[in-house]
């Protein structure tokens, strides 16, 4: 019990005390930027984890839903002066709504057909970002000057922005964690394993896939809003196919089906290229190589699902099985 509590407290301390302390000690704008970008991508990877890692749907257009969130937040903020407090949920809901619309016809597709359909959807949305100039400003992108207004508080300091972004990211990851490390998560996993068999167990395969897809898009939308507010400028290329692949690589490298894996993968693919910055602009080659290496040598990823599940059970303990009684067999 104390161990669970310790891990939870440790995570909170790390995110909200240690990292900010380090950032303040160095006090360079660049470091704050990296930290918030990492937080945004952790959230993105965690949201893709739900649909690709757990439900097993290979999604090649995730960045487009992230883009919808970013555009909704940025356009609401810059054109209509609707700030962060409303813009954030609006971004998530808009992404989820579009996901719902495109999911209606495509959810029955399986395996690579689904992957290709999501690729096409992602590209169509990208073309809209790029070419619907009257709304999205086209290739010029959208500038967003306003800071984060958080229920009336104007947050403009870099450390303040870090806190807001990280808090939203942490809260979302906790929600995603509970979704996947639960019986609901087991239902999603059964789709990945054998959807016909899951149907025989009374699971409505299409509806469940759709839920995973829509929930995932919601969180991608939130990540988009965070991105728009932290960088202050978005353009279509932030949401193109290679961004989708970057997020996919994070999930694959960390280990498909493992949430800690997705988080580690995101940190790795954001932070390592920064360390390697001196080598030149090799970031994307690096992404490709790491992804290839992971598929070939670590088919279960850095932090594979099974070990992740053990980890989850240790942390959640009785929370998972829902019964605190003496069913200790095997839940060590």
């Amino acid at each position: 019990m104390s161990k669970q509590l310790l891990t939870k407290v440790g995570m909170v301390v790390l995110l909200f005390v240690v990292v900010p302390a380090v950032l303040m000690a160095f006090d360079r704008g660049y470091f704050y930027q990296i930290a918030t970008i990492a937080a945004v991508f952790v959230l993105l990877a965690a949201s893709l984890h739900l649909v690709t890692g757990v439900a097993g749907l290979l999604h090649l257009g995730h960045a487009a839903f992230y883009g919808i969130g970013a555009y909704v937040a940025a356009l609401l903020g810059s054109e209509l002066e609707i700030g962060f407090t409303l813009g954030l949920p609006a971004a998530g809901l808009a992404a989820a709504f579009v996901a719902f619309l495109v999911a209606l016809p495509t959810m029955r597709l399986i395996s690579i057909y689904f992957a290709v359909a999501t690729l096409a959807i992602g590209q169509m949305l990208y073309l809209i970002f790029l070419n619907w100039v009257s709304v999205t400003k086209g290739p010029n992108g959208v500038l967003l000057f306003s800071g984060i207004d958080f229920f009336g508080f104007d947050i403009e300091s870099e450390i303040g922005i870090y806190y807001v972004v990280t808090a939203i990211m942490a809260l979302s990851v906790v929600v995603l964690y509970r979704l996947t490390n639960s019986y609901y998560g087991n239902a999603l996993r059964s789709l990945r394993e054998d959807d016909q068999c899951a149907a025989a167990m009374g699971i409505n395969v299409t509806v469940l896939k759709m839920q995973a897809f829509v929930i995932s898009a919601f969180f991608a939308g939130l990540a988009g809003a965070l991105w728009a507010y932290t960088t202050g400028y978005i353009s279509p290329n932030d949401f193109n196919f290679s961004q989708s692949i970057l997020v996919l690589a994070m999930v694959v490298v960390g280990g498909l089906g493992s949430l800690p894996g997705a988080v580690i993968g995101a940190l790795l693919l954001i932070l390592l290229p920064e360390v390697l910055r001196d080598v030149g602009d090799t970031r994307n080659i690096f992404v490709g190589l790491v992804m290839f290496g992971a598929i070939l040598f670590l088919p279960k990823g850095l932090f594979g699902e099974v070990s992740a599940l053990r980890f989850a059970r240790r942390i959640l303990g009785s929370g998972w099985s829902g019964s605190a009684d003496n069913r200790e067999v095997g839940w060590e």
Binding site: V175, R178, L179, S182, Y183, Y184, G185, N186, A187, A198, M201, G202, I203, Q211, I215
Partner: peptide, 13 residues
């Protein structure tokens, strides 16, 4: 068991 009893996304959170 969950197929028969049903389990919702919201409940799991």
């Amino acid at each position: 068991a969950l197929g028969a009893l049903g389990v919702g996304a919201f409940q799991s959170v």
